[in-house]
């Protein structure tokens, strides 16, 4: 059995989650604090991947990143970056596709904290950054963990976006979900079953960890 799709899947999920965390953190913080009139618009855009068919997102990425179009051609000629049918393209598409899964828990974790925590820190002369990192984030660890794990698990389960923008290049863009589809097409049900089982078990364990952690069941094992 070829393990490349499984390894690639976890690589993609890891890189996407890592980058997404640093993008979603300032965005989630801003959304939790702002009274800007454009907030509903930004919230709508962030939530779009929740309701759009993944193929729609993948289709527009394909169009945008295609070297035949202005943006894709500019990326290719000036920066030497080819995003269509490449791992980098998959990462960018995955980040946007999983954006609400990271932004929403962070935003809601910060919004649910009592405003007096933020106010108290401000009146002590602390900057917004100090308040965020020393007071707010340490008190919504459960939300941060939920965001990280959900984004990771969601990226593992991607199919439509990956197929549209990444295609099916072994070792480059052929992730587990595509490989399963391929094996079923070729009637290799046993291999498809192994891939599927690995995804089932790994996502089950990841989600179980989140629920145990957020429910406090793992606290007794900590020193």
């Amino acid at each position: 059995m070829n393990w490349d799709p499984i390894i690639l899947t976890f690589q993609l999920a890891s890189v996407t989650t890592f980058l997404l965390f640093f993008i979603a953190l300032p965005l989630g913080y801003w959304l939790s604090q702002t009274k800007n009139k454009f907030k509903p618009l930004i919230e709508t855009l962030v939530s779009m991947p929740l309701v759009l068919p993944p193929t729609v997102l993948g289709f527009y990425f394909l169009i945008a990143f295609s070297p035949g179009n202005a943006f894709g051609s500019w990326l290719n000629e000036w920066l030497g970056i080819k995003l269509v049918f490449s791992f980098s393209g998959l990462v960018i598409a995955s980040i946007l596709y999983s954006l609400p899964f990271m932004v929403h828990p962070i935003q809601s974790g910060l919004t649910n904290l009592p405003t007096s925590l933020h106010d108290a820190s401000t009146l002590m002369g602390k900057s917004k950054t100090t308040t965020l990192f020393k007071v707010l984030l340490p008190n919504c660890k459960a939300s941060l963990l939920t965001g990280i794990i959900l984004s990771f698990a969601h990226t593992i389960g991607e199919f439509g976006v990956v197929l549209m923008i990444g295609g099916n290049i072994p070792g480059e863009t052929k992730v587990a979900s595509i490989a399963i589809y391929d094996e079923v097409e070729a009637l290799n049900y046993n291999t498809a079953n192994v891939y599927s089982l690995i995804l089932c078990v790994s996502t089950f364990l990841i989600l179980l960890f989140v629920y145990l952690q957020n429910g406090g069941s793992l606290k007794k094992y900590r020193r």
Partner: peptide, 17 residues
């Protein structure tokens, strides 16, 4: 943050972490 005010909130607002 530059007014140097001590403020005690009704809910104490102690940092739980």
């Amino acid at each position: 943050k530059h007014r140097n005010i001590g403020y005690v909130f009704q809910d104490s607002a102690l940092f739980p972490n």
